[in-house]
Amino acid sequence: MTILVYAVVAWVFAIGIYGAIVSRNLIHLALCLTVTQSSTYILLLAIGYKHGAGAPIFEDVKLGTAAVDPVVQSLTLTDVVVSVTVIALILALALDVHRQSDSIDPDEISTLNR
């Protein structure tokens, strides 16, 4: 099980990076970055998990009941929301590149040709 979890993390990270390397399209590149980033969420949440433990919320659960690690969860939740706006910024930059050079293929955009 341990190997499977870490393999999923490495695989999601790797396909994101592979996509970014061979990307011919800036919007595709931005989505590859989100995929890569998602691997860190899986890693954080998987590391904080404990067998047989509940959520770290003690509303109707007795204090002292086994609960998963709350720190990695708080890191993940803020990051998920913030990453959406950062991706929006990257997409806006891609659209700006398209407006200026009529292409979103990184190989066709050259600052030297301006």
């Binding site: 904080g48 998990y49 404990k50 204090l63 709350p70 720190v71 990695v72």
Partner: peptide, 27 residues
């Protein structure tokens, strides 16, 4: 190993956050 994590910080917060901060959602 998966499911066998004992982070000192998280375990501590799970015990003291409710008495210390009066919030039942530790996250």
């Amino acid at each position: 190993a998966f499911g066998d994590f004992h982070g000192a910080y998280g375990d501590l917060l799970n015990r003291i956050a409710v008495p210390q901060r009066h919030t039942s959602n530790v996250v």
